[in-house]
Design a protein around this nucleic acid. Structure first.
Length: 103
DNA sequence: GTGTTGACATGCT
DNA sequence: AAGCATGCCAACA
């Protein structure tokens, strides 16, 4: 039945699941690693579609500005809290460069 | 089929 | 540094 998720989503999920604890990756980075260099936007859209109990560390995915997207709100604080709990350092609203995932 | 939207990226000013 | 403009591609009305 279901077409098994398109290769795109599957690749993105795989990459996101490969992000080590305490590290973060940007949408463009994930998209590129997934094999789709210019699909950064779709990564974000996919994240928004993820269910609440998703096993994927979606909270480790941020934008190229090393900042959390989401227009500030409960979700924003939630992601920030999760990252902090993983040991990620925050410089203001920005994630420390040292905590950016480097494949 | 066309137009708008979207958890973005990159470049220029 | 920060802000504005352009590019890119799929999903949705």
């Amino acid at each position: 039945m279901s077409q098994a998720m398109d290769e795109f989503s599957q690749a993105v999920f795989h990459i996101v699941g490969s992000i080590p604890t305490g590290y973060t990756a940007s949408y463009g980075q994930v998209a590129k690693l997934a094999g789709y260099p210019n699909h950064s936007r779709h990564v974000g859209k996919l994240m928004g579609r993820l269910p609440r109990g998703s096993k994927l560390p979606w909270y480790r995915v941020i934008n190229s500005q090393a900042k959390i997207s989401l227009p500030a709100g409960p979700a924003y604080e939630r992601q920030k809290g999760l990252l902090l709990a993983e040991g990620v350092e925050f410089i203001g609203e920005r994630v420390a460069k040292a905590h950016r995932w480097q494949p």
